[in-house]
């Protein structure tokens, strides 16, 4: 499978990554390389093997339903570009 430049633009948009027109060819070649790798893996006969959803053969650890966190708002909001009245501020988004 090989990707078109439209595919690259769409993937970049979905990932909110800016890919300049000059970079499209380069990105396209890299992604094609990844797809080639996937094609190779697809060729392996996996019939009768139960697919894994995780790379490690382990199960999810469960924790008790207990509140263990305390309020660190002030500290955490020092990381934010903008905050006011307890809210994180972002450019206006209205549906």
């Amino acid at each position: 499978m090989s990707l078109s430049s439209q595919d690259i633009e769409r993937i970049a948009h979905l990932a909110r990554i800016r890919v300049t027109p000059a970079d499209v060819l380069d990105v396209q070649a890299k992604l094609d390389g990844i797809f080639k790798l996937i094609d190779e893996m697809q060729a392996v006969n996996t019939q009768g093997i139960e697919p894994m959803s995780h790379g490690l053969d382990m199960v999810l650890r469960l924790r008790d339903d207990v509140v263990t966190e305390i309020d660190h708002r002030e500290k955490y909001q020092k990381n934010a570009p903008q905050a006011a009245e307890g809210y994180f501020l972002v450019p206006k988004v209205i549906e």
């Binding site: 924790r63 339903d65 207990v66 509140v67 263990t68 966190e69 309020d71 660190h72 708002r73 955490y76 909001q77 009245e85 307890g86 809210y87 994180f88």
Partner: peptide, 24 residues
């Protein structure tokens, strides 16, 4: 109706001041 969140130990109580129940 859990006391804490699904993937963190923050409280789920309704009506707290903004971002006081938000962990890392």
């Amino acid at each position: 109706t859990t006391a804490s969140k699904i993937f963190s130990g923050s409280s789920t109580a309704f009506g707290a001041a903004p971002n006081t129940q938000a962990s890392v």
